[in-house]
């Protein structure tokens, strides 16, 4: 584990941070890692960091990466960052986009 390897650039999280959080809190899912370390909450919304974090989580919990990735955090709208001024043009439309 390394404090030199950055996993999440948006939130400045290193491999060491991920390993430490997994061990300290006994985390088993990407959803928990996201909430504890904010991985995937930045502007990129987890496009690269969650896959990297999944590999570390798999290694730490003795599971396969695909098993960890099968519980991928819910993708939040608007998917790509959207200016408030443009979002303000949206009318109606309840539900959907879960």
């Amino acid at each position: 584990m390394s404090s030199e390897i950055t996993i999440c650039r948006c939130e400045d999280v290193t491999e060491e941070d991920v390993v430490r959080a997994v061990r300290e809190y006994g985390l088993t899912t990407l959803d928990e890692l996201k909430r504890v370390l904010r991985i995937g909450m930045g502007p990129c919304q987890g496009r690269t960091c969650l896959r990297l974090a999944a590999r570390i989580l798999a290694r730490e919990t003795g599971r396969s990466t695909s098993e960890v990735m099968s519980l991928y955090p819910r993708v939040r709208p608007p998917i790509i960052p959207l200016e408030l001024g443009l979002a303000a043009l949206l009318e109606g439309g309840d539900g959907g986009g879960d």
Binding site: R76, P77, P78, A87, A88, L89, L90, E91, G92, G93, D94, G95, G96, G97, D98
Partner: peptide, 8 residues
């Protein structure tokens, strides 16, 4: 769910 109505 997250709604476009709320976002707007």
């Amino acid at each position: 769910s997250s709604s476009p109505k709320f976002l707007g």
